[in-house]
Design a protein around this nucleic acid. Structure first.
Length: 238
DNA sequence: GCGACAG
DNA sequence: ATCTTGTCGC
């Protein structure tokens, strides 16, 4: 057997929904009270119409936002993309990428939503209930909730909410670009989520952890990087 | 019944 | 998500 069969692939949407409702009981949105030295960025890449998915987690030094190492895994998924159920499609592969890490990050930023989800179980929240590392989500588009457009200045933000419940934030990561949506996944609170997101803003629209993860899984899919765990050669100038 | 709808 | 040229704005 080349690829581990996934339990998630056998689920129906109805079954997936009940799993989300059950996992929601395990959510813990409270301060991580821990210093962050390494942050991980998680993302997946795939060819259209293919069941093969390329997953990756890139580790960055939190202070400098410099990539330190990365884990890449090629896997398969048959669970379809259905808004609200992204976790069932991507988590099995992300779990393999995490297991393969020889160095574990203090927190992980996942490409997708945390609790900014109809049942508060976006991929980052779901992943966070399955692993021992705090998680948060950063998505490029809204899935659930309402918000007012934040000012067009980098760093400006608005709250994302459902009824009166706070779900996350809509953050302008760069002047005059569409904002990103950040929300806690598990074992982190709202303020920390926002502070971390602001800390990770670079010169691009995407936050550095997810931007680097996206970059790496794409290089992997196109054959420019190899599967496995690799430290990044910190080349010294001169 | 009609929109909205992560990747 | 991925494909994909030119084009508009700063």
């Amino acid at each position: 057997m080349q690829i581990s069969p996934s339990f998630y692939d056998s689920l129906s949407i109805v079954e997936a929904t009940s799993i989300q409702k059950r996992l929601r009981e395990n959510l813990n949105i409270s301060s991580l009270k821990k210093e962050i030295h390494i942050i991980g960025g998680a993302d997946i890449s795939l060819n259209r119409f293919s069941e093969v998915i390329y997953a990756g987690i890139v580790l960055l030094d939190y202070q400098t936002l410099t990539p330190i190492a990365y884990s890449l895994i090629k896997s398969k998924t048959t669970f379809p993309y259905v808004p609200g159920y992204l976790a069932f499609r991507e988590i099995p592969a992300l779990m393999m990428a995490l297991d393969q890490l020889e160095l574990k990050p203090d927190i992980i930023m996942v490409d997708g939503h945390g609790i900014a989800h109809p049942r508060r179980m976006g991929i980052a929240a779901h992943f966070g209930t399955l692993v021992s590392i705090p998680t948060m989500g950063c998505a490029k588009k809204k899935l659930y909730g309402k918000y007012e457009e934040p000012p067009l200045l980098k760093g400006a933000y608005a709250t994302l909410r459902a009824k009166d419940e706070l779900l996350g934030f809509v953050l302008r990561t760069k002047d005059k670009v569409s904002p990103v949506f950040v929300s806690p996944g598990n074992n982190m609170d709202f303020d920390e989520c926002l502070q971390i997101a602001k800390h990770c803003m670079g010169k691009y629209r995407l936050l550095e952890p997810t931007r680097r993860a996206h970059e790496h899984v794409n290089l992997f899919r196109t054959g420019q990087l190899k599967e496995g765990f690799h430290y990044i050669n910190q080349q010294t100038l001169f």
